[in-house]
Amino acid sequence: MRIEINGTSQEVEADTLDAVLEELGHPRESVATALNGEFVPRGERGDTRLREGDRVEVLAPMKGG
């Protein structure tokens, strides 16, 4: 299925948020996630099923003012 991750359209095989993070090599323990603009806590990623066209954000710590 094709989904959008961090602004880039990608073809993925996994169908849960947690599995997609693993498939794409994101460090699961050190990122925060959102699905279609809604926060998905770490503990709910495994139960969060993705659908064609979903928009996923994977965020990491960054410098800021």
Partner: peptide, 19 residues
């Protein structure tokens, strides 16, 4: 220290350790 969140692109862990 103020910090932010941005799209994960590697380097986040190094920054976290620094902070």
């Amino acid at each position: 220290a103020t910090v932010s969140l941005r799209r994960e692109a590697g380097g986040g862990q190094d920054f976290r350790a620094l902070i």
